[in-house]
Each structure stands twice: as C-alpha cells, then as structure tokens.
Amino acid sequence: MVKAVPLWLRAAAVVFLLLLATFLLAPLVVVVGVSVSESQFVVFPPQGFTLRWYENALSSQAYVDAFKLSGLLAILVTLSATIIGGAAAIGISRFRKPGGALETVFLSPLVLPSIIFAIGLLMLWSAVFGPTSFLTLWIAHTVVAIPYVVRTTLAVLAESDPFLEEAARTMGANRLQRLWFVTLPQCRPGLVAGAFFAFNISFDEAVLSLFLRTPRLTTLPVHIYGQLEFSPDPTVAAVSTLMILITIALMLVLDRTLGLTRFASA
C-alpha cells in the first residue's frame, strides 16, 4: 500500500510530521530551555547554562511543600483508583455484553469535563462538611483516575481466556483463590498501566485542584499556575522540567508494561 504513495506526497508527509513534531514538542522544549538559562528573565533561546534555578526551587519551602502534597496525593490516588477501578473492571467483564451501560457509567468522569464536577464537589462539600481538605482532593482525583484503570484493565481482560477460571473452579479452587490466583494475574498488565496513568493524572491535575484549593492545600500544578498568573521566572521552569522528566519516566515504564501503541489504539 505504502509503495503506491506518490513520491511528492511522501516528501510532503515527512515535512508535515517534522512540523507537527516541532509544534507538539515546542512548549516542552522551551520550558526545559528556560530552566537552564542564566538570564533571570524568562527567555528562549536560553543564554548560557546554569543549574541555579533548580537549586532555587529545591530550597523554596513553598515548592517543596507543594511537591510533597502532590506526591503523597498521587500515591494515595494510585492505590485507591487501582483497587476500586480494578475491582470494578473485573465486575464489568463478568457481564456478557461488553461496552454496556456499566462501562459507560465508569468511563463517564473521563468524558464529562472536570470543571463541572469540580464546582459541584466544592459546593456539596462546603454545604455538608465545610472547608475542603486533603480528603476532598483525594476523592476528586480518585474519581477522575478510575476510568483510566477501568479501561486499561478491561482491555487486558477482553483478551484473556474465560475458561481458565472455569478450569480452576472444577479443580476445586474457592472464590478467593480463583480471584487471587487466576483473575488477578491475568489483569496485571492492565492494572499496572492503569496505576501509572492514575499517578500521572493526579500529579498533573490542575482543574479540580484549583477549585478545591485552600492556602494550605496547594498542589504543585496549582502553585505553578499561581506563579504564571503573576510572575513567571526560571524557577517555575525548573520545577516544570522536573515534572516533565517524571512524565517521561512514567511513559517509558508504561511502554514496557503494556505497550504504548497497544494502549493508544485500545
């Protein structure tokens, strides 16, 4: 098929891809560039090379606190979303018809823009419990992370052999044994991939965190947003670069566990 593509069009495709790569990566490259620039202003292309802004970021109490909050939150969200979402995915897969109403329900936080849910949660929480807390953020992030776990786990389960569980049953394995020794190992790649997505979603999430923020409840993206509104400086770029590196690491692990291409077309 590809052989029959006219030469000029193949050349055009190469140019197109290069332009697109530039467009998609430009903002990230710029942020990395600014973070190592000697200039105290936010400039690109960078002037000289320094790691001063990283030192700055690591010695700033506000950044370190925000980083600790985001990290702890992301780890807890990873745990809760993977357990709840994984269990739900196993439950959904037991129904005959795939892609039914249940799946739609569990994927709905993915489709509905989070601003609508964010404002509702803030209003509900304030009416019932008062000021928002760490728990509010944990619940909010878990809700938006669950669809990713459900989707990756369902994708893996769709390819698994349903008769394995039947075989275990006939050989006398009880319910828990079947779940633990048969179903769960089959889900593992999906659960691992879902867990990484959950971490990434929570760690980078800005909308819910902005709506639910309090002075003591400022996640890293919210702190960066605040800096950008008033005075962007190379320190923000240094922190952003560290977050980009975490994202790249997560992506590489994801490719190892589930295969990026496989997820992308799932």
């Binding site: 990230l28 980078d204 993206p221 770029a237 952003s240």
Partner: peptide, 11 residues
C-alpha cells in the same frame, strides 16, 4: 501526559 499548566507556560 504533561500538565496543561506546563504546556501553557511554554506557549
């Protein structure tokens, strides 16, 4: 997968 805040900063 990169935070929207960071991408916007780049722009």
């Amino acid at each position: 997968m990169t935070s929207v805040v960071i991408r916007t900063f780049g722009w």
